[in-house]
Design a protein around this nucleic acid. Sequence first.
RNA 1: GGCCCCAUCGUCUAGUGGCCUAGGACACCACCCUCUCAAGGUGGCGGCACGGGUUCGAAUCCCGUUGGGGCUACCA
Length: 469
Amino acid sequence: MTVLSDRPVRLRFAPSPTGFFHVGSARTTLYNWCVARQMGGTFVLRIEDTDAERNKPEWTEGILSAMRWLGTEWDEGPYFQSERTALYAEAAARLHGAGKAYYCDCTREALEDRTGDPNQGYDGFCRTRGLTVGPGRALRFVTPDEGTTTVIDLIRGEPTFENALIEDFVIVRGNGAAMFLLANVVDDIDMRITHVIRGEEHLPNTPKALMLWDALDGGPEPVWAHVPVLVNERRQKLSKRRDKVALEMYREDGFLAESMRNYLMLLGWAPKEGPELQPFASLATQFRLEDVVPSPAFFDVVKLTAFNGDHIRLLPFDEFLDLCRPWINSDSVPWAKDRFDEDLFVALAPLVQERVSLLSEVPGYVDFLFTDEVAYDDTAWSKVMLKANVPALLGAVADAFGTCEWEPDALKEALEAAGVGVGVTKRQQVPVRVAVTGKQFGMPLYEPMALLGRDVVVGRIEAARACLA
RNA sequence: GGCCCCAUCGUCUAGUGGCCUAGGACACCACCCUCUCAAGGUGGCGGCACGGGUUCGAAUCCCGUUGGGGCUACCA
């Protein structure tokens, strides 16, 4: 990493509370957090809530809880820009006093009338009018008319911008509120931020930030790193309107924080040592900002899901049980809550752990243990039960189960023998599975039957056979 | 339109001039294992966008073309 100064390393994550916590933000946070940890730096959380109309307190709550879930705790903050307006006002006054900013009362329409081109930026009409503060008057920053501004970026090299093409941008709105760029730069200076890691969409803002930084005598500029955007299958930036972007939703789907971290770290970067699937602690020490690839990455839920299954299987059993709790105690569970049997669940959970790839799949694997009436899956019923030999098979199995020893191996033996007895020589357990569990797929059959008991199992087989009569 | 960014299997990536007949992961296919489904094992399919240079040698460096993306608000 380039060392630009020996100042204490300070990074920040600066979201605006205008919606759900985005998976792209999650990756940016992860990268910030890793660099902060590696360099012994401080990770600051700053809520950029300068736009009162769009911000909601619940979104801030969402940001905090998402970051806690992700495990990227901040060391300082959260600071709220809405509580720091005096700082921005002071900076604005300084710029105005120094002739580096001017008040402007032009409307968009007036500008367009003058230029005749709706695509053209502000023409500097008010630069020399000497307007003073007043309602409806915005403060614009005077940008240089010549020269270039180069951003030194750890990921993208040195993008260079023509100053003449950068308009005199607004830094304070007509209502007196600071704009993003002003507040952002003032805070980065004030908080002594040394490294700015943020989304690529901010790259065009950076030359403006640099100009402000200089105009405000901000001291050493931060190290910049603009990480590539995350895109959907159509290769467009993930947007909250079109795409499923809320970290919270993935959590609710049963994704583990560990697999989320693992997958997100890999979007644009790969560890030099070891496989892709790794504990976050190991990835966090290996991460190198300068190795982040500069091209956009597709957020692939299929691969995420595969990672999640792998991480679930890697979990110590106790941890898996703990993580299952919210799902098996949920109100939407497909069984009467007082019928839940802890011991039964714990006994069979290992068979579930090696099968699910999402925690939300857990109830569907064990529901038949806690219901009196088996709910038959329509597809399973029509694909498995409507064959001619099924009633005979179920009858024979019910008979055999009436007398055989009641433990898994004996059940297997009895079931298979009964099947052969009626001419079914393979997959004999499938119809019995549908009768007992209601589904054609699931955990191994003999273990749960052994625990459910003879009466229940035989009863279910008879009940299914009765349905076929 | 303007400015900026990007370009290795379908996807995420390894690759920093010879180790590349381009490696891994996800997905997909086949086989093995097997009480269903998974898991696991083995194998397979599949890629350097194109055109010019530079060089003894280019996926790697340069230029161009094409394609994709981001930004272009008194949003952040």
